[in-house]
Amino acid sequence: MRYYAGPVARLIDELARLPGIGNKTAQRLAFHLLNAPPEAAHNLARAVTEARDSVRFCKICANLTDSEVCQICADPGRDQTQICVVGEPKDLVAMEKTRGYKGVYHVLQGVLSPLNGVDADSLTIRQLLARLEGGRVREVILATNPNVEGDATALYLARLIKPLGVKVTRIAHGLPVGAHLEYADEMTLAKALEGRREV
């Protein structure tokens, strides 16, 4: 038995396909859109369509962009000799928020996962190696997550890049700001000790 008119049921079905949204939430969102002024729904629909149709991967760094080359790669003020490698576009945003990095990026579009099977060809590793061919890049900073997948990817990339004569570094691991020493695990503490600095 159909409880809702066809278009409403379809809207609820489509919303419920989104990650983290169940049927109840989908219903709530659908009714919010139906009760709001028509412009709200039209603006949302336009934003979704525009984003889907215009956003693509940067041909240099594989970040999401609405032009052929993303803003960061096109910025002449960026240090093109330093590439920071991240797993996902959202990691790039996290790095940018620090405002401390002035080099360029490379987005792998995923990480190697030893336990879930691995397809290195589905990552942008080949594009990264092609970027290093010119001899212009001096340092590659591996900024994948400090978990098994991130470490596997970083170690694999280091193995491929080091023979090219490019300096390969890994972002430091250590205690998060505001953390308590007593709750830190031995590996984090060991890494924090390794990366200690004179004050």
Partner: peptide, 24 residues
């Protein structure tokens, strides 16, 4: 409460691969 972390398994690519295989 962490007892043992086996840090070597995260620092060498081959050991990481073999540890994944044993766990799997």
């Amino acid at each position: 409460d962490l007892q043992e972390m086996f840090p070597a398994l995260r620092e060498r690519l081959d050991l990481l691969g073999y540890a994944s295989y044993l766990a799997e």
